[in-house]
Design a protein around this nucleic acid. Sequence first.
DNA 1: CGCAGATTTGAATGCAATCAACACTGGTGG
DNA 2: CCACCAGTGTTGATTGCATTCAAATCTGCG
Lengths: 242, 242
Amino acid sequence: MPPSPHERLIVYLATLAPLGEREREAVRTLPLRLRETPARNDIVHEGERSDGACLVLSGLVFRYKTLAQERRQILSLHFAGEVPDLESLYRDRLDHSIAALTRAETASIPHAALRALMHAHRGFADAVVRALLVDAAIYRAWLANIGRRSAYARVAHLFCEVFARMRKLGLADADSFRLPMTQTEIADANGLSSVHVNRVLQKLRREGLIASKGDVHEIADRAALAQVAGFDPRYLDGASEA
Amino acid sequence: MPPSPHERLIVYLATLAPLGEREREAVRTLPLRLRETPARNDIVHEGERSDGACLVLSGLVFRYKTLAQERRQILSLHFAGEVPDLESLYRDRLDHSIAALTRAETASIPHAALRALMHAHRGFADAVVRALLVDAAIYRAWLANIGRRSAYARVAHLFCEVFARMRKLGLADADSFRLPMTQTEIADANGLSSVHVNRVLQKLRREGLIASKGDVHEIADRAALAQVAGFDPRYLDGASEA
DNA sequence: CGCAGATTTGAATGCAATCAACACTGGTGG
DNA sequence: CCACCAGTGTTGATTGCATTCAAATCTGCG
């Protein structure tokens, strides 16, 4: 039985800042408006206003921008527990869209309730800001990835990041994870063509770095994969060290 | 005579959130530790801790990541008035470096003082979070730019963005601005080689979109430049509209 | 079964990187 | 004062990674 919506959120927040029991209790009181989105449908359209933030409960959610001539750039991926549009708390229009890659269950958390909770609980407010900062750190990692790495390294890096993030959220096994993205979508996330992604994946398998069956990807040689990706997981750390 | 350090910061913050006179007054009380950095030197090294945030007073500052084999990705540019490492308030180690492109004057603002001010003035705290969000929006724009646009469009987009941002800060003329970056640095910002940037710039001049003398770039045809860049300035808006 | 979407393969093209000179600039020191 | 030098910009030639186009499987599903 999957964790309840509120527990999902708590798991995520706890990866960002220490949460006391009082704060956890407070999070459990947040009102949620449940919603279901079919695969490949927008959850929030670019330019739209909304009065709540979107908590992912199940499925895979992503942000993207569409440019001229059907070109699309996927900007980030979001797993259960995460809140992709936290920034809607501060900016009233998104400059990009948020959509579901798979069928996804989400919950809208009213901005007013979030603000009240942030006001009442410093630890919660802290976690929210840290969530925004980890998002930004991921953007930077993607920028370096797309701007300065080969296609082979880019895809390897994406796999390393997804694996690390899913592990933290308790969504991945010890050495494999399910990533229900088509090769075209992987291409849109990495600034590549789908044909080339196909070839890169074959090479990653041939070299023994990964072994994929359908959308379940096994990390066959984690060290080697991190090596070719130039992956340093520290950018994903939300909480400060001692 | 250039604006005072505090006024520079106020100009920037005012582009992000409305600031009352009381808040401006409070900003003026922030203690600043002035510092000067020669061109092409780090201001903060990757992984370093610091107890203050870095306000840019003059010169051009940028963030970058270094990958294997001397490859470098420039992540963002920062002009006078901006604070590139605001996130150091929340995360104690940077995952990238901050450096000066030109000789730059900066001021370190102690975290403690910033926190106190944020605590006392909601408008100030708001501006800080919005600054982080606009940074993130710029990352997204760069991601789409590097991931999905041609070299020609990428450079055009960079020029559009820099021009728009400098105008807001009162650092650019009506139709030209000074951008003291070498072609190699423009290349590192756009995931290109310097040779190719050279050719792209020639083409932009040949097509009559820009006219550059040294590092002063004149926007010869703003509409056409925005057109080829696919530039939509809304992502730079910090303040909410009515 | 038949269809649509996804993956795979092959071939050709092209954008941008790389390699290699050369020209231009400003700054330095003899 | 001028020779020298390093950094930058420019140009040409070549290479190669990745795209594009096209078509052939494969897969799941109504």
